Simulated scan of single mutants.
Amino acid sequence: MSVKKKLGLGIAAAALGISLVGGGTFAYFSDTEVSNNTFAAGTLDLAVNPSVVIDVDNLKPGDVMVREFALENNGSLDISTIDLATAYNVVDANGDNTDDFGKHIKVLFLENADKTGDGWVIGDYNDIISETTLYDLQNMTPDAVENLNHWITELLGLGGEDSGLAAGATDSMYVAFEFVDNEKDQNEFQGDALELEWTFTAHQTEGEER
């Protein structure tokens, strides 16, 4: 075969190859759609109103103090539990204390009125805390939004909210403190102060299929 024929066949083969490549690249239909998606997290936003539950001075043994406050869920997520932690600091005015002032301050009750429902009528209170000193309360973490008597309120149809705190909801709380008069010499506490810190920690409900 002459050089001209070989050259001609090579050019023809190259042209055919380009044609096939072109056909393989563009000889089909296509369609494209874009999906834009979003994952937005909710919020837990617990408020205590007022933030200072009690501020009292000039106390003497035997005094009882009743206060009202609210737990507010200002977030977008339901709250399952609210743990209450207790810590305090005693300011010993005279440096003569032989006992812990916290053993002489008693929490008579911490009542969640919204969980009680009509139980107020029959005295079936939902006491989150009942008859304990601040000293002992340091080792407890009660759930401030638990319905402790749900089986009674359901059985008798007395109402009362379920445990937890729904988004946008508020629970009314009542608390009573007592400076216990133990009928003994308590002069060491004259002029002393007890600085109480209550920390409320909210927890989310369980995850679910969405």
Rank of each mutant, 00 (worst) to 15 (best):
V66I: 15
G24T: 08
V3N: 13
N73R: 04
L59M: 14
T98H: 09
S35C: 05
L196D: 01
G42P: 08
S30V: 07
I11E: 00
V175M: 14
N36G: 02
V48E: 08
G191D: 14
T32P: 03
I152D: 02
V90K: 05
V48K: 09
L59S: 03
E206S: 15
H104I: 04
Y135C: 04
G10N: 02
I11W: 02
G42D: 09
F69L: 01
A14S: 11
L148F: 05
T170M: 04
V64S: 13
G24A: 15
S35P: 00
E111T: 04
L155F: 13
W151H: 10
Q186H: 06
H150F: 14
T133G: 10
Q138A: 13
L46E: 09
G164P: 00
G95W: 09
N89P: 02
V53T: 04
E197A: 13
N139S: 15
D114H: 04
E146D: 09
D55V: 02
A13Y: 05
D100G: 07
L71A: 07
D136T: 14
M1K: 09
E206N: 12
A144H: 03
A169I: 00
V48L: 13
L7I: 10
I129D: 06
S51L: 14
E188R: 05
V121P: 00
L156A: 11
K103N: 08
I129N: 06
D45S: 15
T43A: 11
E111Q: 08
G10P: 00
D118W: 12
A15P: 05
D83M: 15
N182E: 06
L59V: 08
W120K: 07
H104G: 01
N139C: 02
I105E: 00
T38K: 12
N74P: 09
D114L: 00
E195H: 14
F109I: 06
T153F: 06
G159V: 12
D63R: 08
Q138W: 04
G8H: 06
V91C: 01
T38I: 13
K106W: 01
A70K: 11
N182W: 03
T199W: 04
K184L: 15
G24H: 01
G8N: 10
